[in-house]
Design a protein around this nucleic acid. Structure first.
Lengths: 183, 183
DNA sequence: ACTCCCATGTAAATCGTTACATGATTGG
DNA sequence: CCAATCATGTAACGATTTACATGGGAGT
């Protein structure tokens, strides 16, 4: 449901082609709403049919260095700003790791979950590292910046804080496992 | 992908019928892997065909107070404990709220996001309240309990810590909006 | 008798993932 | 020229959501 608006947002930030969008999803807005290029192309078609985006005119023949590019229409911009105002229902949490720990508790195979936890912890720590690099690169300025910059920074901070919470939690559980008898 | 294992876990904790599972998903394991009763019935069929669960024999005719009940087979238990050991890739984050804030930043409609944020904050706070009630009711004992209890408690703590992070983040963004000029 | 809820299910639509296809083009 | 990559797309499947259907039992 939000893919549509994630694309409108990204195209509002800057007009671009399908592949460019796919790349932005891989390293920016996709941290909060992942999507593959297949999803994106499909959604671009639909958004075009609905008149929410339009294709920019190509100067020459469509080719590798001259791909189809899209921009948001006035209708699209209007719909997006209306959507911003809607009361937001939190997306339900969905964590395989949590299910694994519950499974460990249910079966009594408590130490078997250690490998999963350590791997999970490492992945979260890597995410955290990526986010902090972005923060240092893009938001390290001492002067406040404008409202847009501040809001973008808050979103990145959300990613950082959530990943931090995960890393701490994994560490706590791993410590707890260390204190348990080897079974 | 994890629904299968969430059901196996829940049936390992206690055998039960489809509706019972649906209710447990609504107030326990579903906090970390939500599922509707339709998903659950379909998955129960598949798990039965794969021999991972089996139907308990009914004493009388199937009826309201005498529903079909399922338990995990030895194969199911084996598969579940093997699955516990697999290295766990974190499920990608997916947050409509984060996309909304990015949209607010991109369009410049920064104050329009306030209503969404406040509603989101309230929902997160309500989740937090529910989790804390469960903690007080089920995990308030001073003696440590066994390994299973400890692990279950850690999972609940994960929920609590993530919701706390969300509430704080919403408060920070709302404060930030208060300090910005009215547009 | 009427209504509500229980327990199970079917159906359709959308969303998301994985695998593969195609032509064009750039780099070596 | 050949391989790798770019840019776009198709196809199929699985997962998820939403809506509706049904037959029975419980309560009033």
């Amino acid at each position: 449901m939000s893919l549509k608006f994630a694309i409108l947002t990204s195209l509002t930030e800057r007009a671009g082609s399908g592949i460019e969008l796919a790349r932005r999803f891989d390293k920016s807005i996709g941290y909060f709403w992942p999507a593959t290029h297949q999803q994106i192309y499909r959604e671009l078609d639909r958004l075009g049919e609905s008149g929410l985006i339009r294709e920019l005119p190509l100067v020459g023949a469509p080719s590798r260095g001259n791909p189809r590019r899209f921009e948001v229409t006035e209708d699209g911009r209007t719909l997006l700003t209306e959507w911003i105002c809607e009361p937001d229902e939190p997306d339900p949490m969905r964590s395989t790791m949590a299910v694994r720990v519950r499974a460990a508790a249910a079966t009594g195979a408590v130490h078997e979950v250690r490998k999963a936890l350590m791997h999970h912890r490492d992945q979260r720590a890597a995410n955290l590292g990526r986010y902090r690099e972005i923060e240092d690169r893009d938001f390290a300025r001492t002067d406040p910046g404008d409202a847009r910059d501040l809001l973008q920074h808050r979103v990145l901070r959300l990613g950082i804080e959530v990943e931090q919470a995960w890393v701490s939690w994994c560490d706590e559980v791993l410590e707890m496992l260390d204190r348990l008898p080897a079974s």
